[in-house]
Write a protein that binds this DNA or RNA. Structure first.
Lengths: 264, 264
DNA sequence: CGTTAGGTTGAGCAATATCAAATTCGGTGG
DNA sequence: CCACCGAATTTGATATTGCTCAACCTAACG
């Protein structure tokens, strides 16, 4: 009997996503709500979502379920390059002329909606001062997460890697209203975890058990419960992305600082 | 007595960089040549080039020498996230509001020039059909190299990692006229290599020796000689970025835009 | 209930790290 | 040209982390 998860509606998720980054006015809220009104699409676990990237860049938005960008080696080794969770877009970057070396695959049953190409439509600062800022922040955060992945794999121990990654997931999900009290849907098998953190399944299993023994996590039936976030963050040396205030267009800056003041 | 390296002039390097990706017309050549005429700037080994990223995005161009984006852990472990070589720009991405977690550091004496923000100025397809394509390809390639780094660190053995990385370096450098007959300037210490491929210095040393013993590389006094590129590529399972359509160099820009229209 | 995917456990082993001590190399001052 | 210095490379010995293999367990599901 799995814990029921009341998924946010597409619009609510979109609002949480943007609202978590920039203070939204009523105008932006309208635009975003509308964006979420497209019909959702369902995917089975393991479906290939994107074989060639770049075809639909930044246009498919995850409403529920997880996916991953994967590269496979000839002998069967697989590396998950990054994980996509609800509130992410699938299908970044790439170029139509360049053959892709990765696939994007569903790691669980998945629901997506087709949005317009927000990156293209909203990145103009003069037309969308607020939303373009949000998109810039999203891109910058994503880049940091990509760097995190490299550091984990390159220089951290098994325990550190997993701790760091779980902390990162918690950060990402709670910023968009997908986690409550350190608890969130976690649909991956240990094999998939292994492919994320570059370890063997067996070792992942043992490391998770150690975390459980220490009372830092609970993980069962598709749900992760982080009991000791502080400790995980410290163990993995996770750096939470933090906003500097300052250098923004005035209108945005004012609202932003108001929002930050409220958030304190 | 070091092997003399006749560095390309900034303009020549820029031309090689763009010309290696798209067929340039005389108009584009003019524009690019002009871009290379700014005064070069010199940096000592180990200088911090960027503490806060995003300040000068895509505006500093490496003429000679190598640099790297680095993340440090508290206990002194360091991971090099990516390496910048001549023909690369420094200072991508990031966002002024987001505190950076990496530094960009010179890994050798370095010469750069300040260019205009090509990403901003040339990314409009209607104004710069050829150059914008080149920029798109650069971004897409860079993304693939970033993915390569993750796969190396996550799923490859020491030997594979180094082989793969050397093959990638060779690809990047020769595409811009910085390598001849598999030989190129290679100014890194083994410690820096270790920080790239996520290994200990000692193990890097032993792995390099194995490659030498097999007659696949020569590495001494700041120069790398790849004697068996095929074998390195195969061992590391390196995938050379390949253009899909047969975009044969052809001086007419029109052909290119036709090809692009088809590719859409 | 039987099947199956996923999770857990144990034992032995391989890859890579660590530590410490040479050795070589590229300058640099005399 | 030589002697010397510090940095980088190399070598040997030992420790450790994480992998592999193989078996076993459990829960969900038809």
């Amino acid at each position: 009997m799995s814990v029921p998860h009341i998924a946010q509606s597409p619009s609510a998720l979109l609002l949480a996503r943007f609202g978590g980054l920039v203070p939204l006015g009523e105008r932006e809220r309208q635009i975003i709500r509308k964006l979420g009104e497209r019909a959702p699409q369902a995917w089975q676990n393991n479906t290939v979502l994107l074989a060639h990237e770049g075809e639909g860049s930044m246009t498919r938005f995850i409403v529920s379920g997880w996916a991953a960008r994967v590269r496979a080696l000839r002998d069967g080794r697989r590396q998950i390059i990054d994980v996509h969770v609800p509130g992410d877009w699938i299908g970044h970057a790439g170029h139509p002329l360049l053959r892709t070396t990765t696939r994007t695959v569903a790691l669980s049953p998945l629901r997506t909606i087709q949005t317009l190409d927000v990156q293209r439509e909203w990145s103009d600062r003069s037309r969308e001062p607020v939303l373009s800022t949000a998109l810039g922040l999203i891109a910058a955060e994503d880049q940091q997460f990509a760097q995190n992945q490299v550091v984990r794999l390159g220089r951290q121990t098994a325990y550190e890697r997993i701790a760091h990654w779980l902390a990162e997931l918690h950060y990402r999900l709670s910023a968009r209203g997908e986690a409550a009290a350190g608890s969130f849907v976690f649909p991956l098998t240990q094999e998939a975890i292994a492919d994320v953190v570059g370890l063997s399944v067996v070792h992942v299993n043992r490391t998770l058990q150690e975390m459980r023994r220490q009372g830092r996590i609970e993980l069962r039936s598709g749900r992760l419960n982080i009991l000791a976030l502080r400790e995980l963050i410290a163990a993995g040396e996770f750096i939470e992305p933090t906003l500097k205030s300052g250098l923004v267009p005035d209108d945005v800056a004012v609202r932003l600082s108001q929002a930050l003041a409220l958030a304190q």
